[in-house]
Design a protein around this nucleic acid. Sequence first.
DNA 1: ACGATATGAATGAATG
DNA 2: CATTCATTCATATCGT
Lengths: 207, 207
Amino acid sequence: MELQQQQHQQQQPDEDNNGGGKGSFLCRQTSTRWTPTADQVRILKELYYIKGVRSPNGAEIQQISARLRKYGKIEGKNVFYWFQNHKARERQKKIFTNEVPMQQRTAWKPEDYYSYKYSNRFSSSFANTGAVTVGQRDFHGYGSVTMQEKTFWDCPVPAPGGSNIGAGGGSMMSNTNYGSGISYTVFDQEQEADAEIETLPLFPMHG
Amino acid sequence: MELQQQQHQQQQPDEDNNGGGKGSFLCRQTSTRWTPTADQVRILKELYYIKGVRSPNGAEIQQISARLRKYGKIEGKNVFYWFQNHKARERQKKIFTNEVPMQQRTAWKPEDYYSYKYSNRFSSSFANTGAVTVGQRDFHGYGSVTMQEKTFWDCPVPAPGGSNIGAGGGSMMSNTNYGSGISYTVFDQEQEADAEIETLPLFPMHG
DNA sequence: ACGATATGAATGAATG
DNA sequence: CATTCATTCATATCGT
């Protein structure tokens, strides 16, 4: 895996209208399942790791999917599932690697953020697009919001029989933002026109 | 084409191939996917066929992987995937063996697979009228299909950027809001963003 | 070398 | 949320 981007996905913002409703000519081109575009994944991860979104509610899902729609066909449920899965797998990974009693759901300390990541060429050096205002409720303590990315559980155990993983720094600013609307206006400005997909992966993985 | 399958590689049963201490330029994480050793496969199958293990949980996975580690490098996820795949493929094989007239199974091609695939619960094929119908009963045809209803994913969100006075999907649930406390009241809706309401499908849901 | 196959890995979609 | 199913991609390995 590493850098080999990969996987299956294209479907740029261009409309592919597969669900057109008509009898898709027997072609099975109509992939039944949503295949996020690179940009969509990027944004989703930003929301997840940077903004700390974990379980968006209906309204948020709508906004998110509306935003992502600029990069490709997408429905609300896709966003919903994406977050569900992403969170679940992050958790799962943790269990498999070492079922460390995941508790200490107290306040995380800044140090947690810096927890080194695994040795990877790509570190999380995301060009923080100046995100500033963040408003996201949904506390998600769990002391570790593993910001590491690539794909879950990937790094092999370094030492023989050793326990590894350093769980990465998270990001999340669970500042209980009650009532205020959603402030997804943070780095709302992604290249609308999508001039050039900066494949600069803050998060290498493909997703 | 009975079972001439499996068992290809061997890989030195001993030795943790890579990741070892010295790591012969093996910094790359999992550059190569896990290739179970013969012993590992044997044990895994014993667990699967004899002990009936199908979906080991976190603890079991760790246990198993710990045991298999004696025979070669392995991670929890490998065990997890192994069972997932093994079960899935066994299931698949069974389908092709039973659901197809036991005759010309001389050599089916992967394309044949695509014949089964039962429908999805909900189809997202027809454009909805935009009406806010709430409970979509759907055709269900397979014994235990859960009935689904419209879920909150697709509930329209008020205006983009607009102040959402009351009602509307003004995301304002406190973080401690368990259960989907969707509260948007359905008062008229408007297509936000994108004037192209392509097939906004009725969503399924799990109550 | 290649192509087919087996299977590891990833992840969307559901269900409970 | 936890679990599981379904699909699909990627690749190790083998047959020819």
